[in-house]
Structure formats: C-alpha cells, structure tokens
C-alpha cells in the first residue's frame, strides 16, 4: 500500500482547506445573530426566519427549481441522444459539425452564449421568460450530459448490443433493455449535473430572462452587489445544504457503479 509523503500530505491538507474554508465560514456566519456580518454576535437562526417571509426570494427559488427541472430533463434526453449519435453511428454527414457544436459550449464564455441566445430570441420575436431561460439552459447543459454519457458509451463493450441483436432483439428494444440500464448511472449523473448548472447560472439567465422570471441567482446577485447581508449567508447555506444532500444521496444510490457524479472532464 502506498503511503503519502509529508509533502503530499501537506499539499492535500492546504488544498482542501482552501476549497472548503470559505464555504465553512459562510455557513457558520449564516448562524450569526449580529446584523453586522463580520462581528460575531452569538448563535441564532433568525436570518432563516427572515428568509421564510421574503416572498420575492421564495418566488425566485421556485422559478429556479422549475427551470432547472425542465431544462435538466430536456438536456438529459437531448444530450444522451447526441452521445449516442457520436459514439454509435460511425461516420455520418455533418458528424464533425455535431461534435464541434457539442464541445464548444463547454468552454464558451457565458457572456457570448447569453448574448447570442438573447439576440436569437429577439430576432425570432419570442416572449422572454421561463421558456427562454429553460431553452438556453438546455442548450448549455445538454453538452455536459453528452460528455458524461459519451465517456461511458466509449468504454461500453459494444458486443453487448450486438449480442442482444444477435439473439433477436431489434435496435430500439436493445437500447432500452441493454444499453440504457448499463449507462443509467452516467445518465443520472448527467441529469444531476445539468440540474445544478441550471440552478447555478447567472449570466445566461440575466440575458435571456423576461418580466416575472427572476431566478434565484439573479436575485442573489442583485443583493450581493449592494454588499454582504446575513440573509444572503442563510440563502447560500440552504443552497449548499440542498446540493450536498443531493450529491450524497446520488452517490449512495449508485454505490455499485463508480458513478459518483464527478466533474466530467469539462
């Protein structure tokens, strides 16, 4: 068994402290009784109570959750299709273009994606709001789903599909009875990733939103610009808790496979 050297151990300790300390501080200070966010005034949950009465914030949260659910569902379907097209259809016309379109959004600066989508919606004269944000998020997140599912499909022993067909199973049924059950952990991880990316997005939503469709990040951003507030600490803590719970549950559910939702080599 390999042992960690002192140097490596120190590196890991500092690296992980760097990653987690700011979030830990945020969480701790959300329980600060003082209105001054930098002065410790004892433990309290008063800011969480304040949250519950903030109608706008709750509405924004519901918007965000609905958009995340809708866009992640769409993105999972489209992204899985794209992954299949890229790994299972050999060479077809326009394959290069498809792979270029799938990989580019992953690194494309968000301001460019956001601006271009808005201009599209304006040109097409679409009413902006819930549906335009959902469509925009689907575009971005389906590419992440594709990457996650594609990595799984590339490692997938293709003779399994051939065996199913050889035994009399037509292609569509083969997909649902053999391929899908085996790539399910990746598809689920892709869905979770899409969901959290959508929940997280500020820039693209800011461009493509419309009246009445304020999302949680847009709301938090407008508050944060005015300075640090204890309520915001509390909102953020709730979000962190929700995401952390989801991740832990997901990794427990997919315990068999090494399907812990990882960052798919973005």
């Amino acid at each position: 068994m390999r042992r960690l050297s002192v140097f490596n151990l120190t590196t890991l300790a500092f690296g992980l402290a760097f990653l987690y300390l700011p979030i830990a501080i945020l969480v701790i200070y959300s329980f600060n009784d003082s209105r001054l966010v930098t002065v410790w005034g004892g433990w309290s949950t008063r800011w969480y109570a304040v949250l519950l009465h903030d109608r706008d914030l709750l509405a924004a949260t519901l918007n965000s959750l609905a958009i995340a659910l809708a866009s992640a569902t769409l993105a999972t379907i489209l992204g899985t299709m794209a992954a299949l097209a890229l790994t299972r259809f050999g060479r077809f016309r326009g394959r290069m273009l498809l792979s270029a379109m799938v990989y580019a959004p992953l690194v494309m600066p968000e301001v460019i994606t956001g601006l271009s989508l808005l201009l599209l919606f304006v040109a097409a004269d679409v009413d902006r709001g819930f549906s335009t944000i959902t469509a925009s998020h689907t575009t971005l997140t389906m590419c992440f789903v594709t990457i996650v599912v594609q990595s799984r499909l590339v490692d997938f022993d293709r003779s399994l599909e051939e065996a199913a067909m050889d035994l009399g199973c037509p292609p569509l049924r083969t997909f649902f009875s053999v391929t899908l059950p085996l790539i399910a952990p990746a598809v689920a991880a892709g869905f979770l990733l899409a969901f959290s990316l959508s929940l997280d997005d500020l820039v693209i939503a800011s461009f493509t939103t419309g009246p009445g469709a304020t999302t949680l990040p847009i709301r938090i951003y407008s508050e944060v610009r005015l300075g640090v507030k204890p309520e915001i600490n509390a909102v953020c803590t709730v979000l962190v808790a929700v995401v952390a719970t989801a991740i832990v549950m997901a990794s427990l559910l997919s315990k068999r496979g090494a399907a812990a939702p990882g960052l798919p080599g973005r």
Binding site: I23, L26, V37, L202, I220, V224, V228, L239, A244, I247
Partner: peptide, 16 residues
C-alpha cells in the same frame, strides 16, 4: 464537490 455549489455562492463567500 465545491464545483457543485453555485459559483455565485463561492464568490460571495470570498467577499465575506
């Protein structure tokens, strides 16, 4: 794991 929490939150944590 930190990647899964919002970028906005992570940046905000540093303002604190």
């Amino acid at each position: 794991l930190p990647f899964w929490t919002s970028l906005l939150i992570r940046v905000y944590a540093w303002i604190n």
